[in-house]
């Protein structure tokens, strides 16, 4: 095969591959440095909520990707609480969290503007496992265990 044909074939193949997702090395490097371990990502426009491991304890972290630093979450990460799942609204003002505390698993809503944690009871009662807040922060889907079955509850929020 002549070099010219080989070059043309390469160009054709590159053209067929189309646009691809691109890693974000700056932000990914920052996320690696910032915590020993990070899981359960919930991505909003400029916010990333996740569970990070620091000093042997897992906690909820909300990273402002624009400012490239975590924001304080006063009142949320209690020493006796073990977070299991987290989800953030698109504007970063609301966080829904499933956490274990006092040997029970609970669903809570954290409002950053006022720094309050509101416990959200499940009806009928069940054990929450995972939560997903919709973009406007007004509805959430909760994976709940009831009688050995997984169910998904949709909850409207004020």
């Amino acid at each position: 095969m002549t070099p010219v044909i080989s070059l043309l074939l390469t160009l054709v193949l590159l053209g067929c591959s189309g646009p691809r997702p691109k890693p974000l090395p700056d932000l990914n490097g920052l996320l690696r440095q910032n915590a020993g371990s990070r899981r359960e990502p919930s991505l909003a426009q400029r916010w990333l909520a996740s569970l990070t491991l620091r000093g042997g304890r897992e906690q909820v972290e909300l990273m402002d990707l624009g400012a490239r630093q975590p924001v304080p979450l006063p009142g949320l990460n209690r020493a006796d609480a073990q977070p299991i799942s987290v989800s953030v609204s698109a504007d970063g003002t609301r966080l829904a969290v499933v956490q274990q505390r006092d040997e029970r698993t609970e669903l809570v809503l954290y409002r950053r503007s006022v720094g309050t944690v509101q416990r959200l009871p499940l009806e009928p009662p069940g054990v929450p496992r995972a939560v997903s807040l919709n973009a406007d922060g007004r509805r959430m889907a909760v994976q709940v265990s009831r009688g050995g079955r997984w169910e998904v509850d949709l909850i409207r929020l004020p």
């Binding site: 997702p21 691109k22 890693p23 990914n28 990502p41 909003a44 426009q45 990333l48």
Partner: peptide
């Protein structure tokens, strides 16, 4: 992300969980 501009992925890396972002 709600506007589909980015994706966050949890992966395993050297025995740790990591989160990586894609544009």
């Amino acid at each position: 992300a709600p506007d589909a501009r980015r994706l966050a992925l949890q992966v395993a890396d050297k025995g740790q969980w990591r989160v990586e972002l894609l544009d």
